[in-house]
């Protein structure tokens, strides 16, 4: 019951965040919204694991957290430099 309520709260938040992702107005707003949406997804997967009594879901949540972080960084790097292979500042 409590996990159903928590899942409902997360769904409401994901809807609000999705609205921001659609509204923009700038590219950065959308990236911020998608990153926040990803964090909510991690929590959602964990809550669903408890709701359905399947603790294996936590491993998926952990992997999703990793993908979410790397995805955000990759998109930002791509839009900043135009390719993903470029070294950062301070390197040749």
């Amino acid at each position: 019951m409590m996990f159903a309520a928590a899942a409902a709260a997360l769904l409401i938040t994901m809807l609000l965040v999705l609205l921001r992702a659609f509204m923009g107005p700038t590219l950065y707003d959308r990236i911020l919204a998608v990153n926040t949406f990803g964090t909510k997804t991690v929590l959602m997967i964990a809550v669903l694991g408890f709701l359905m009594g399947r603790p294996e879901f936590l491993d998926i949540a952990l992997v999703y957290a990793l993908i979410n972080f790397i995805g955000t960084i990759a998109v930002l790097k791509f839009f900043r430099y135009g390719d993903l292979g470029r070294a950062g500042k301070g390197e040749p």
Partner: peptide, 8 residues
């Protein structure tokens, strides 16, 4: 979490 969504 919902406050964060509203703030966004």
């Amino acid at each position: 979490v919902i406050t964060g969504g509203i703030g966004l």
